[in-house]
Structures are given as structure tokens and as C-alpha cells.
Amino acid sequence: MSKIKPRGKVPKKAAIDEIVEIKTLIRHPMHSGRMKDKNGKIIPKRIINKFVVKFNNEEVFNMNLEPSISTNPYIAFPFKAKVSGTFDFQWIDDNGDKYSMKRKMTVA
């Protein structure tokens, strides 16, 4: 199975009060529990069920994902730049695994 790998695109610099777009993608099969493998056996459900974004340790955005979200979930959302800081992205897998990624943004 391909490795689960998070990716994110955050502007390195932003102006004060500028609304920037944050884009994230994680490589994950998102097995809905309805798909079958080559032998006709149902692949058990295994999805990313939660995505949480913190900025300077304060939660700013989160999303609950259901099996109707596509393979390799792509999520984009806005953020209003006020102070420099670090984004902390976290994806939570059905099996309890957590994948995280940090990105810095400088506001001037």
C-alpha cells in the first residue's frame, strides 16, 4: 500500500488582514467499506474521519469526513492573516493513527 503522506500549501508571507487560501492534501485510500478487492472481498472501511487545523495552538478550523469524501482528500479553506505563526494540521485515521504537518507563515 502506498504510504500515507500529508501535503500542504501555505503562503510563506502574507500582509496583515489579507485572506489567504490554505490547501491541503493527504494521500490516503479512504476505503468506504463498500469497495471490493480483486477477489471480490469487501475492503473494510478505513477513512480519515477528522481534520483539525490549529494556528499558534488555537483551533481555527476542523472538518468531519465521511466515506463520501474522495480518495486522497483535498481540503482548501481561507485564513485571515493577523500575526506570524505556525499552522498545525492533523488528520485522524479510523485506525487511530494521526498524521500531522506543520507550516510557518510570516505576516508583515
Binding site: E66, S70, Y74, A76
Partner: peptide
């Protein structure tokens, strides 16, 4: 989605820190 096996697709929780309310994702 009213024609999928289950109606729920996603739930987004916003905060004022985002400055605007929008999002993009991909669904089945």
C-alpha cells in the same frame, strides 16, 4: 448527498479567525 449510500458527506467547523467562510473539497 441525497443519492449516496449515506446522506452525510462532510461537516466543516469555522471560527472567526478564518475571516471568510468558504472551503473546497472533493467528494464521491
Amino acid at each position: 448527498a441525497d443519492g449516496n449510500p449515506a446522506p452525510n458527506v462532510a461537516k466543516f467547523t469555522f471560527t472567526p479567525a478564518l475571516g471568510s467562510c468558504s472551503a473546497t473539497t472533493r467528494i464521491r
